[in-house]
Structure formats: structure tokens, C-alpha cells
Amino acid sequence: MKSAFVTVGSTSFDELILSVTSNSVIQIFRELGFEKLVLQIGRGLVRPEPCTFGDFTLEVFQYKDSIAEEIQRADLVISHAGAGSCLETLGAGKPLLVVVNDQLMDNHQLELARQLHRDGHLYYCTCKTLTDTMKSMELSALKPLLPGKTEEFANFLDRIVGLEKVD
């Protein structure tokens, strides 16, 4: 069953929850072949009831210890611009649409989402442009994000501190 996972992170993003559960967006989900939508709503005041209508299911929860499983199960992740959610989703190799909260001014987390968008790893929109973006985006065109070079960092640090290489 093709499913999408929406995550707002540790705070709230009511506008996003309202947008993704609006009739027009649900309609687009169905046109794209999605049959399930899972919402992580955090501290939000907008709390849609979990329900099933026809062949479409809506699941809702506030928080879970780890959203890794939800990401793993999803065919598309729609996320706030938080670095954690972005990196976790891309790390899992899942297509990602970041919805920017334009009511948060000077949010430095946007820098990362914007850059990853420029590099072709994710799509990027606001609640107002969500429907248009969902209609036009091509998930197969997204480039996978290669894992960070932690090994190179470790080797560099070894040299800095003068640890001899043991093989």
C-alpha cells in the first residue's frame, strides 16, 4: 500500500496539518496512487481524527520515540524544514518534500533545506504552494544523498592528534 508520512518535528505546524488534510491535497494523494497518510502532529492544536474513507486511510499520532520506522514504511515523506527530519529521511533514501513554515522568521534551519533543494535532493515549498508542488514534482528525479564522510573526518582527527594507524 502506497503511503505518505507527514512530520512536524518536536513543536507544531498546524498550517501544514490543515493543508495536507484539505480535500484538494487528499485528492492529489489519491491521484498519485497513495492509499494511506500518516501524520505526526507534535504539539499542534489541529488534530484530525484517524479515519478510513473508501480506500484511503488516515493515521494520526503526536510523538513517537523514533520516527525511523514511519519513514522506512513511507513512499513519500513530507516534513518541516528541521535538519534532523531532513537528514533522517534522505539518509533512509526516501523521497522528501519539505514544507517551509514561512511564519517562523529567521529560522536558520531553512539554510540546510534550501541547500539540499539546490543540490537536487528534495523538493521544497510553503503551505500555499503545496498543491502546485505536489502536482508538478517528479520524485524519481531526486538525487540520493550520499552518506557523510565520517571516515575521512576520523582519519583527519587521527593525524591531528598523532594516533598511529593500526590495521
Partner: peptide, 17 residues
């Protein structure tokens, strides 16, 4: 939050030394 996740990923790569 995010800072911890990042730094722990670096720690993961460090040798037992």
C-alpha cells in the same frame, strides 16, 4: 536534539583509541 545526533555520528566513526 540535532547537535547531539550530529556529534554522535562523528563519535561513532572514531577508533577505540
Amino acid at each position: 536534539g540535532g547537535h547531539t545526533t550530529e556529534i554522535l555520528r562523528l563519535m561513532e566513526s572514531l577508533s577505540p583509541c
